[in-house]
Amino acid sequence: MLQFLVKRLVSGVFVLLGVSFITFIIGYFTPVDPIRQLMGQHYTYVGWLQLRHAYGLDLPWYQQYYNFLFHCVKLDFGTSIHYQNRSVGDILKDGVPISTELTSWGLLLTLLLGIPAGILSAVKANTWIDTTNMTVALLLYALPGFIIAVFAQVMIVWCNVQFGLNWPVANWGTPWHYALSDIQAKLVPVLIYGAAGYAYFARLARTSMLEVLDQDYVRSARAKGLSERAVIYKHALRNALVPLITSIGLSVGLLIVGALFIERMFNIQGIAHIAIDAVSQGDFPVIQATALLAAFGIVTGNLLSDILYTIVDPRIKLV
């Protein structure tokens, strides 16, 4: 187990190194001179040289990369170019609670609705329940979040006009507060963020459950006279959950960037929104930090899924 963990950790670190190198090298070759942009009309050659030296941009590339890595390890991503006196960590700190709130509710919803829906579909395979459920899941899976978001917003507007409601269209209440107005604002974005995951888990759960229901041990359980309930919930369900649990690990990794479009569509000031703003402002340190954060999330998610896999299914040998 330990050996396996170490191996996965090392490969994860290598992936992170690769990602950091790509982000660094793209930034290094940027045709836009950040110092010049920063100075604007106050540009003087001497000042330019001084600032360049102060930011460490006059060093050779390997030295810069080394410094960059060294600071990353200390969780210091430098200072933002656009907001001159704020550190990148400070900027990201505003977005983290909002993004995690959106995505954790979304993930919870996904799991609590998607997996039971898929299991139900498998148990009632080829009935109208199954067909409806899978059609909805297919549509939600094929369509990207922003299209569903547009439809939802138009629906909200229509309901507001039709029934005289005052439901907010694009807003996010106070993070981690749940007054009525907060819930109103958060409900739709969370639902839409969860929709894609719902569809994915429902489809996966259905396939996995159908496969398990076809196994010999399920037939044996039925043959020895167990009630259908016991067969499904005690024997089949546990085995059907194995592939699902590993996917949960993977989706945890996507928590941070997964909400890119939802945050844009509903004007939620999370990390993804910060990243979008940073790109349009050419604020490179912030972009770098968000890319690294996202990659870190995915590597951690992968690791988590590997660990979960071995815990759930003891047949898997760790090499």
């Binding site: 990602v19 930034g27 836009v32 990243a275 968000t290 890319a291 996202a294 990659a295």
Partner: peptide
């Protein structure tokens, strides 16, 4: 492996952010 860990959308944003202008 590397590209798996790099969200493609973020990569595109990175490239566009740097070379777009």
């Amino acid at each position: 492996d590397l590209m798996f860990a790099f969200p493609s959308l973020l990569f595109v944003m990175l490239l566009v952010g740097v070379f777009g202008s």
